[in-house]
């Protein structure tokens, strides 16, 4: 596994243990971290989001874009404010798109150079659309 980027810092790993969706739903207490595969619906845990501190969303391949929508739904519809971590086939050239959809932690795929990651997360200086931290461009365009 490659490095973990969290809070704009490069780490080797952290202590968080993510349960699968099934394990999470089966558990009696309220665990704080769960991971979802692409295609698993975030709606399944919508009622428990207040108690969850970290959700990992898996990219089975870098070309599978479902997790972008899952992250956007978590942030926009459910106002989820905890960690959303990208796991799986996470590559440098997609970090900006992930960040703009609401991811804030990235478990890089093997061989991805962590030194370049922070620059990639930042990406373009302007964007047309609403993103996680800004309104659409037209709302502040002259």
């Amino acid at each position: 596994m490659g490095s973990l980027i969290k809070n704009n810092t490069v780490l080797e790993s952290d202590e968080v243990t993510f349960l699968t969706l099934q394990e999470y739903l089966d558990s009696d207490n309220r665990p704080q971290a769960v991971w979802l595969d692409a295609g698993e619906e975030i709606e399944a845990i919508a009622d428990f989001l207040d108690d969850i501190t970290a959700i990992a969303l898996n990219f089975p391949a870098f070309s599978d874009g479902r997790a972008y929508s899952t992250a956007a739904v978590l942030r926009r519809h459910h106002n989820y404010t905890g960690e959303i971590r990208a796991i799986g086939d996470v590559r440098l050239d997609q970090l900006e798109q992930m960040a703009r959809c609401g991811f804030n932690a990235y478990q890089l795929a093997d061989g991805q150079n962590a030194d370049q990651a922070l620059k990639r997360i930042e990406g373009f200086s302007v964007s047309y659309q609403q993103t996680i931290d800004r309104d659409p461009l037209f709302r502040h365009r002259a």
Binding site: F62, S63, D64, G65, Y68, S69, A72, Q94, E96, Q97, M98, R100, C101, F124, S127, Y128, Q129, T131, P136, L137, F138
Partner: peptide, 13 residues
């Protein structure tokens, strides 16, 4: 065109 250009959510449909 503007809305769809570099839309972060829909680049991997």
């Amino acid at each position: 065109r503007q809305w769809s250009t570099f839309h972060p959510e829909y680049n991997w449909l």
